[in-house]
Every structure is written in structure tokens, then in C-alpha cells.
Simulated assay, not measured.
Amino acid sequence: MSDKLYTSAVEMVEVGPRDGLQNEAVQISTFDKLALIERAIAAGSRRIEVTSFVNPKAVPQMADADAVCAGLPERDEVTYIGLVLNGRGAERALATGRIDQLGAVCVATDTFAQKNQRQTSDQSVEVAQELVAMAQAAGKTGQVTIGASFGCPFEGEVAEERVVAMAEQLAKANPVEIALADTIGVGNPAHVTRLVKAVTGVIAPIPVRVHFHNTRGTGLANVWAAIAAGVRTVDASIGGLGGCPFAPSAAGNVATEDVVYMLERAGISTGLDLEKLIETHRWLTGVMDKQLPAMVGRSGGFPKPAETLKKELA
């Protein structure tokens, strides 16, 4: 096997403020959400999914979407992403004047699509195309995530051909990227490799982004497989928080600090400061008042030599 790296750099999308928090039972204050966003920026994050514009009765944790947007730091180099499921959500997001990119979602199975956004799978594709068009008409960009790409909590196995066909349809709207989401964490590296290559084959030059949950411990392996297959943009959540209110047993996202540690140690740049991510993990542990799933956040980075520690402490 060649020692040549798959790539020299990978872009990380921080989804903690939205996907990381949306399924938490304890209501997180707007102040703390904004503090998390500011900490992510300080650690180097330049694309952040800050909130979702959905019915607050369905997802109470995101009820303060407008307030979060009003408090976002003025940072021209940072792309703020708002998740939207329908035209009303898109209008709200655009009206804030702070959202740079709309993130639309479609779902690979009818049952999950109905529970998640009251649409059939085909309808969710059509709506996602419309949302991308709304973003473009407003001078913004739009991207689309295909939920349950690797398996559905209600219908089980999802045919790879189905996901590929959806991606091909979505590409007609010219989104900046199409993401494959393992919503319930059932994917494996072989499946990831096949699906990423198949989707890339029908949507190129539109890039593929990946969104993995670590529900069954395969998250990091899936990230590595995706990068080997050509992916250059990866979603992750500080602390490894995450879950979907409409998908049973959809445990946390791959943790930002875990992915950064793995990639940076492999010589792949992420542009993120691991020590600041670990500091944020510890701060977020206090906010959530519980142990967070991320491993590196708890263990720290690569152990420093004793001489280095002595100099730092001197």
C-alpha cells in the first residue's frame, strides 16, 4: 500500500450548535449556544450549522433560531448555515439576514420522510430542489443532505441505487454540495466507499459531503473510508453530541475533536486547533452537566514529552 496521503486537507463543518443540541432534553440557553459558536470560530471553524428553522413544537431546542442568528458574530470569513425543511423555514432563515447558506434535507425512505418532515421521499427531493433555488434567488447558496442514506430506522436497508438516483435528481438544482448522512449510525467503511464513489460518479463536479453518527462505533472508520473515496468535507459535532428527534436510537455525531485528532496525526490538515476544541469540550461538559461521548475531549491529544510540559509550566 502506498504511503501517499489521500489528500493534504479536509474541510470540517461544525454541526454542534444545531444537530449536536437539537435532541437534548435540557434546554440550552441562547447565550450558551452563541458561546459554543464563538468557541468553534476561535478553534478555526469556518462553516458552522448554527440552527434550524423548524416548528418549535416539533424541535423545542431550536425555538430560539431567530435570537441565535441575531447574536451571531460579524465574521465575513465564516459561513453560517441554517437547516430548513420547507419554504416557510427558508423564508425565516433568509429574513434574519445572517444565514449565508440554506441546508435542505431529503430522506431516502417514505416512512422516515413522513415522520421527519411530513413528505414522501420523492416529495422531499422536490422540496429540497425548491429550497436550493430559493437560496440562489436570494443571493445565497444551498446544499442538500440525504438522510438515512445508509439505513432507515423504520424500513431497514436502503438500496444504494435509491440514494444515487436521489443525488442525480438533486444535482439538477446545482447545490454547492450533496451530503450523505448516516442518520442512525449503521454504515460501515465498505458501504461508505461504494456509495460515495457511486454518488460522485453521477453528480461530479458537485462535491459529496459526509455526515456520520457514531451510534455503533464505526463513525471514525467511516470518515476515513469517505476521505479515501474522495470526500473533502466532513460534518462533526464538538463533544460528539447529536441525534434526531424522529429517528429512534440515533446517537451522537462523530466528534469534531476525535476526527481532528485522527486526521491531523495522519498528516491531513483540518485548519482546527485541537487544544481549543478540547477546552471547548470541557466547557460544554459543564453546560450539559454530563459526560460527553468524544474520546479525545476526555483523554486529551497526543501526550507531550516531560521536557515540554516542564517548559510550559515554568
Rank of each mutant, 00 (worst) to 15 (best):
L5H: 03
S8R: 08
A9D: 10
G16M: 12
P17V: 01
R18H: 01
R18Y: 02
Q22D: 06
Q22N: 11
V26C: 05
V26Q: 12
I28R: 03
I28C: 04
A35M: 10
L36Q: 08
E38I: 07
E38F: 15
R39A: 12
I41S: 00
I41M: 01
R46S: 09
R47V: 15
I48N: 08
E49N: 04
L72A: 13
P73A: 12
E74W: 04
R75T: 08
D76C: 07
E77A: 05
V84T: 10
G89F: 09
A90M: 14
E91G: 13
R92D: 06
L94S: 10
R98P: 00
I99P: 01
Q101E: 15
C106E: 00
D110H: 04
S121H: 00
Q123H: 00
V125D: 01
M134W: 03
A135H: 09
A137L: 05
Q143V: 07
V144K: 00
I146F: 00
G147V: 06
G147T: 02
F150H: 06
G151K: 05
P153C: 14
G156R: 15
G156V: 12
G156M: 08
E157Q: 15
A165R: 02
M166C: 13
M166S: 04
A167E: 02
Q169C: 02
L170A: 06
V176G: 06
V176Y: 10
I178W: 00
I184W: 06
A190V: 12
H191Y: 05
T200W: 00
I203V: 15
A204L: 05
P205M: 13
I206C: 01
H213M: 03
L220D: 01
A221M: 09
A225V: 01
A228M: 05
R232G: 06
S237I: 09
G242Q: 14
C244H: 14
A250H: 04
V254C: 11
A255V: 08
E257I: 09
E257Y: 11
R265E: 11
G267R: 14
I268P: 08
T270E: 04
G271F: 11
G271W: 02
L272M: 15
L272W: 10
D273G: 07
K276A: 07
L277M: 13
L277Q: 10
G286W: 00
G286K: 09
G286V: 09
G286T: 03
M288D: 14
K290F: 11
Q291W: 04
P293M: 05
P293I: 11
A294H: 01
A294G: 13
G297R: 02
R298C: 03
R298A: 13
G301L: 10
A314H: 12
A314Y: 08
A314V: 02
